[in-house]
Amino acid sequence: MVSTVEVFDPRVGCWMAGESMNDSRGYSAAVVIGNSIFVIGGLNEDGKVLDTVECYKEGIGWQSTTSRAVGKRCFFSAILL
């Protein structure tokens, strides 16, 4: 489980290191809504399934939100239509 983030920049066609999340997690889902990235659920370093949500906004960075996933989730995807 990691807190590191990799960001793809289509303008230059490569991946680069982004600002790390507050919490280490793996097997989470991510979705972009507007100008924000939301990372939902996953597993923490102790193998605990999470219901927490972190939000990234450029210029502000990663923040924990008061939102919670609909139950604890891992090994899933999130898509916004």
Results as ranks from 00 to 15, higher is better:
A17E: 13
N22T: 12
K48N: 09
A78T: 08
K48D: 06
A29R: 01
M1R: 07
L81G: 09
I40E: 02
N22I: 15
E19D: 14
G26M: 10
M21A: 00
P10N: 10
M16W: 02
G42H: 02
L80T: 03
G13P: 10
R73K: 15
T4E: 07
N44I: 10
T65G: 07
S67E: 06
N22R: 09
V32L: 12
E54C: 06
R73I: 11
G61Q: 03
W15A: 08
M16Y: 10
K72C: 06
E58G: 04
E58D: 07
D9Y: 08
G47R: 06
A78N: 07
R68Y: 06
M1V: 14
S24M: 01
G26R: 12
A30Q: 06
V31T: 03
V2I: 01
S36Q: 13
F76H: 15
D46H: 11
E19L: 08
L50T: 03
L50H: 04
S64E: 08
W15L: 08
N44S: 07
F76N: 04
I33C: 12
I37D: 01
A78I: 05
M21Y: 05
S28V: 03
D23S: 07
E45F: 02
V70P: 08
R68C: 09
V53A: 09
G34V: 06
R25T: 03
L81A: 10
C14L: 11
V39D: 01
S64R: 15
L50K: 02
M21D: 04
R73W: 11
N44M: 08
G18R: 13
C14E: 13
L43T: 08
G42E: 07
E6V: 04
Y56M: 07
V5I: 11
I60W: 04
E58H: 08
M1E: 09
Q63E: 13
S77P: 04
N44A: 10
R11N: 14
V31K: 03
G59A: 11
V32Y: 01
N22G: 05
W62H: 03
A69R: 06
C14Y: 10
L81I: 14
V53D: 05
S67Q: 11
V12R: 10
Y56L: 08
C74T: 00
Y27I: 02
F8C: 04
V5W: 10
G61R: 04
R73Y: 01
S20A: 14
V70L: 14
Y27F: 13
I79T: 14
F75Y: 14
I40L: 15
T65S: 07
T65E: 01
G42I: 03
V5M: 13
N44D: 15
V70Q: 13
E58K: 14
G71L: 06
V12M: 09
E54F: 00
M21I: 02
